[in-house]
Amino acid sequence: MSIDLLIFLGLALVAVGAALGMLFSRNTVYAVLFLVLVMLVLAVLYLILGAPFLALAQVTVYTGAIMVLFLFAVMVLGPQKLAEGEGPISWQRPWAFGLTALFLVEVVYAFAARVGGLGKLTCATAAAGSPAAIGKVLFNQYLLPFEVTSVLLLVAAVGAVVLTRE
């Protein structure tokens, strides 16, 4: 068992554990913090997988901006605790867990047994996912989608303002 695999398994365990923590925690603030943990782990994984720019973006955009926004929302809305598994459609909970477990089994089976052709990941060079390389592709090949994205963000900002206006 190589050291790479050990590191990966460790990170994966932390990520899955944090995700499950988010799934089952009653306290919304805890759930947000668990999700922040998942995202940080993912940022580390991105670094390992040769995507340093994305790793930084993950930390700043997701953990920095989006999750703070979530925390902010939690503070505004108040830490309401809801009894999961009760309510009008309590029968859905066992079905949901059963079916997702079945799906997980199928997916793991599919990746472990059926898809074998991808082989090992190459250890990426430092320059491959660097901001310079990303910028070159983004502003040449993907210039139009990039500009459209800016419009989307603008619309979202205006939309958020309009929706929360008294």
């Binding site: 009008p88 459609i89 859905q92 949901a96 079916l99 997702t100 079945l102 799906f103 599919a110 059926r114």
Partner: peptide
């Protein structure tokens, strides 16, 4: 059509599951 969003999501998920199982 129960009106519960989670119900609808479950329906979608069941559909995905069936398609995936068929492909598998």
């Amino acid at each position: 059509q129960t009106g519960y969003v989670r119900n609808y999501a479950l329906s979608i998920f069941v559909g995905v599951l069936l398609i995936f199982t068929y492909l598998l």
